[in-house]
Design a protein around this nucleic acid. Structure first.
Length: 880
DNA sequence: ACATCCCGCCAAGGG
DNA sequence: CCCTTGGCGGGATGT
């Protein structure tokens, strides 16, 4: 109820008044805290002295007074507020919102260096983009939803959630149980690591935003930018949207981290995280909180931004590429070129990607670290965290797949192809609709506000169909499920595609050595309610827990083995990488080619459609040597891999249940990803591939072309939500049923496939997501996998966030907490919620104690699985 | 004593 | 060579 109302309100409000964070800020600033005003005054002018002088004793001069100003007044967060106040949240695309660093620095009266810090994080969210030397272009939140969706997707692909779990566990273990379990875990982990070496990703770009300045290209991988994106990803993939500083730092350090340097590195990383966090706070995307464990409180941040968006799917929808496509063939071309450039620093790229110097540096450092860590043959690694090298590969593949999907969507849209099955259509519709519904979130509003842009473009074709069908209902649902469900991004400006740069860090197959636990260990958590309010009661959700190492280990080991077997060894992976590289460019071309005809007339404005960048290092990976394989081969490999992985997962037995029930055939469906790839193929010599795949991998695909595949995720996601709601035990059965029910419209095999995919997808989305990635080798999760989705849900459901602010969002519904929560969050995102929060925030200018957030998890009755929450976590706002 | 994180040195890269 | 970027870590400031 609360949630519902909230949303409505939010929407209403939004409808009435477009949500403009900036505007709100401005208003708040002007109206609210004097402190802020003072600061502004100081900045802007000199006005007089107002009370602001407080700190200063005498203040002879305004200047001096400023000097006296407490450090807080100079905080990056405050500076960022000031900066944000200067631009509209949703700038008119038509206008050129140019930002001159010099001017800003002067006006804000700060050193330039500080502006760079802000710009870097804003850039990581694509709120600005460097247009030229001293110049940035302001995008505001126009692309925020899309960006977040992508980041979430990428984060999941990289299994950040798992990594976090591992780290947390590790920390806990160390703290608690030092030895035994740890060792086991370590070993397991090690194995996993060996298999997967996870790669780090580099900067994720949006289609429309790409780096404009050539200069920029070279440094895309800069830490602040990338770190910021990673940091955000952590929030987006974690169940309770709470990320503790130490965990984040460890993950961001490069997974590896050796014990020794760690300390220094850790400190530095933490410093940067604070910098980033301050900006994100000013953006109202996160709030500071404290996680309380038995041991003590740890600083942490909670995501308070929009939640919803869909994953990659969004992109697809967004991609509406239509517009982009339309923009121009030229652009596409250009984009392609860019892609190529990005991907390959040098022409030689194929063979070995050249790294940018910076990259090299990173790689080195990373490698060094890893070496240290790994040096021990069986250095412990966290299974979850890392992924085997193979994993990395898959991740990349996934990214590519995502891109492909997007493109496919576009194609389908433009082309109208689609033999989609009804179900697929429905799903698609849902997805597409979502954007709108989702719009409850910012994005939608944005759309409303600025109809000009996106409007027509993207949706034209897509929307229509959707609308026709289930629109409202469908849309609605998604919204609820939002978290899991893929939502289309409202903003379609950008094409769906995004570029991901992978760092070389992952060079080693087993990158992660398990970090040694630092003093900071985090515990797994269960959230308890602190305030008595645990929401309505149900309360108990558990946060996740870590599966016990011992338990996991066996499975993990199994999994690993299976994976390895399936994977055909590292060599394969290596090969694939190269292939990918090759393929990616090709794909781009292909896509473009396809698009061109359709696009024929488009506005040239559209930048590149999408580019994928794989990390050069990728190439470097173990074998490094790479032969060029044809795209086809690469694709095939990729597909095979996925299949295998999938199978392996099944083998793992982790969650065979799901797979089995859902679909026998469907399993193949996983091919979703593959499908994406397939698409590209189709263009070239696609047909053959598809067939091959289809026959070999999935009959489904063949039957349901890309569209179905594409959609699948969406539909799947939804169902998953539902399922999740249900208790664990029931879940399995139920979910299926529900899903089916959802899909009832069209029982076609395609549907089944979708369901399967969905399951997989679902699993992915779910925090636990053990399952999600077909490829994931890991392990411990495996146990969870079946449950994982449920757990995650539970967790979600369980967790209640309370905001000090009136808004609220806290209610948790007993029945389907998740849904509610999701809604709420979105609501939060919605104007009202935000407004409130903002108010609070603003009121307390500098220090910000925005909302106190309390996360409580109840006991978590349901979790049967191994993953029982071991410890409690209390999150409290830190105001005090 | 510890958490935060500002400040600004200084290197890298581009022109 | 100069200027823009921005990594990085000392050490000040807040709690």
């Amino acid at each position: 109820m609360g949630p519902l109302t909230t949303p409505k309100k939010g929407r209403e409000v939004s409808s009435v008044d477009p949500w403009t964070p900036t505007s709100n800020l401005k208003m708040l600033i002007s109206a609210a805290s004097p402190d802020i005003r003072n600061r502004e005054k100081e900045l802007c002018m000199d006005n007089d002295e107002q009370e602001g002088l407080e700190s200063t004793q005498d203040t002879e001069n305004g200047e001096e007074s400023e000097k006296m100003v407490s450090r807080k007044e100079k905080s990056l967060g405050l500076l960022c507020h000031k900066f944000l106040a200067r631009y509209p949240d949703y700038p008119d695309p038509a206008l050129k919102n140019d930002i001159c660093l010099d001017d800003v620095a002067t006006e804000l009266n700060v050193e330039r260096r500080r502006i760079y810090d802000i710009m870097n994080v804003l850039e990581s969210l694509h709120m600005v983009s460097r247009s030229a030397k001293n110049r940035y272009t302001w995008h505001g939140q126009t692309k925020l939803a899309q960006t977040l969706a992508i980041l979430k997707k990428v984060g999941k692909d990289h299994r950040y959630d798992q990594q976090m779990q591992h780290i947390r566990q590790r920390l806990l273990d160390k703290e608690f149980d030092f030895d035994e379990e740890e060792k086991e875990n370590e070993e397991v982990v090690d194995l996993d690591n060996g298999e997967r070496g996870q790669k780090e990703l580099f900067f994720v770009e949006l289609p429309g935003v790409e780096f404009k300045a050539a200069s920029v290209n070279s440094r895309k991988d800069k830490s602040l930018r990338v770190m910021s994106q990673k940091f955000v990803m952590l929030f987006l993939v974690s169940n309770p949207r709470v990320v503790s500083l130490d965990v984040a730092a460890k993950i961001l350090i490069g997974e590896d981290q050796g014990a020794d340097q760690d300390k220094n590195k850790f400190k530095t990383k933490v410093r940067r995280l604070y910098d980033i966090a301050n900006v994100l706070r000013s953006l109202k995307l996160i709030e500071k909180v404290h996680v309380t464990e038995e041991r003590g409180r740890k600083p942490a941040f909670e995501w308070v931004g929009p939640e919803d968006f869909p994953q990659v799917n969004d992109l697809d929808s967004c991609p509406s590429g239509c517009p982009s496509k339309t923009k121009s063939v030229l652009e596409s071309r250009a984009s392609v070129d860019n892609c190529a450039k990005n991907l390959f620093s040098s022409p030689e790229a194929k063979r070995s990607f050249t790294r940018h110097p910076s990259l090299i540096k990173l790689a080195k450092s990373i490698q060094d670290d890893r070496r240290k860590v790994n040096s021990a043959p069986s250095s412990p690694v966290k299974s979850a965290l890392n992924d085997s090298s193979g994993t990395d590969f898959p991740n990349k593949m996934a990214q590519l797949a995502a891109i492909c999907k997007i493109e496919l969507d576009q194609e389908s849209v433009s082309g109208v192809e689609d033999p989609k099955p009804a179900a697929a259509e429905a799903d698609a519709a849902a997805v597409r609709l979502q954007p709108v519904s989702s719009s409850s979130m910012k994005p939608p509003q944005a759309l409303l506000l600025t109809p000009t842009q996106e409007p027509g473009v993207n949706t034209t074709v897509h929307l229509t169909p959707l609308a026709s069908k289930p629109t409202s209902s469908v849309a609605y649902v998604p919204a609820q499920c939002s978290p899991l469900i893929p939502v289309l991004l409202p903003q379609q400006q950008g094409s769906g595609s995004y570029t991901v740069y992978l760092p070389a860090s992952s060079l080693r197959p087993n990158p992660l050595a398990r970090p040694q636990p630092t003093s900071l260990a985090v515990r797994s958590m269960t959230f308890e309610d602190k305030t008595g309010q645990s929401p309505t009661g149900q309360p108990t959700a558990k946060s996740q827990q870590v599966s016990r190492p011992s338990e996991v280990s066996p499975l993990a080991s199994k999994r690993l083995r299976s994976d390895s077997a399936s994977d055909s060894s590292p060599s394969k992976a290596k090969r694939s990488d190269p292939n990918l590289k090759d393929s990616s460019p090709k794909l781009c071309e292909i896509l473009q080619a396809r698009l061109k005809p359709r696009l024929s007339n488009q506005l040239s404005s559209r930048p590149s459609p999408r580019a994928l960048h794989l990390d050069p290092e990728f190439v470097n990976t173990p074998g490094a040597a790479v032969a060029n394989q044809t795209l086809e081969q690469s694709l095939e490999t990729f597909l095979d891999r996925e299949d295998k992985t999938v199978n392996s997962d099944g083998e793992a037995g982790l969650t065979p249940l799901r797979a089995v029930h859902l679909v026998p055939g469907p399993l193949h469906t996983e091919t979703l990803v593959p499908a994406g790839y397939l698409i590209p193929i189709s263009q070239q010599s696609l047909a053959s591939y598809r067939e091959t795949q289809g026959s070999g991998g999935d009959s489904n695909k063949a039957s349901t072309p890309t569209c179905s595949i594409y959609q699948t995720p969406t539909s799947g996601s939804r169902p998953a939500l539902t399922q999740e709601i249900t208790p664990t035990g029931l879940r399995l059965h139920r979910p299926t049923a529900t899903q089916q029910a959802h899909h009832l419209h069209s029982p076609s095999p395609a549907i089944l496939n979708f369901t399967l995919q969905n399951l997989g997808l679902i699993s992915n989305p779910s925090p636990g997501n053990t399952f999600a990635a077909p490829q994931t080798p890991e392990h411990a999760d495996a146990l969870r996998s079946p449950l994982s989705s449920s757990l995650s849900l539970q967790q979600k459901g369980v967790v209640f966030l309370k905001t000090v602010s009136p808004v609220p969002v806290q209610q948790s519904l007993s029945a389907q907490p998740l849904t509610l929560i999701n809604l709420q969050q979105p609501l939060m995102a919605t104007p009202k919620g935000t407004g409130l929060s903002q108010h609070s925030f603003f009121n307390t200018p500098v220090s910000i104690q925005p909302l106190a957030a309390v996360v409580t998890t109840g006991g978590h009755p349901t979790t049967k699985p191994v993953y029982i929450p071991q410890r409690k976590l209390d999150v409290t706002t830190e105001d005090s």
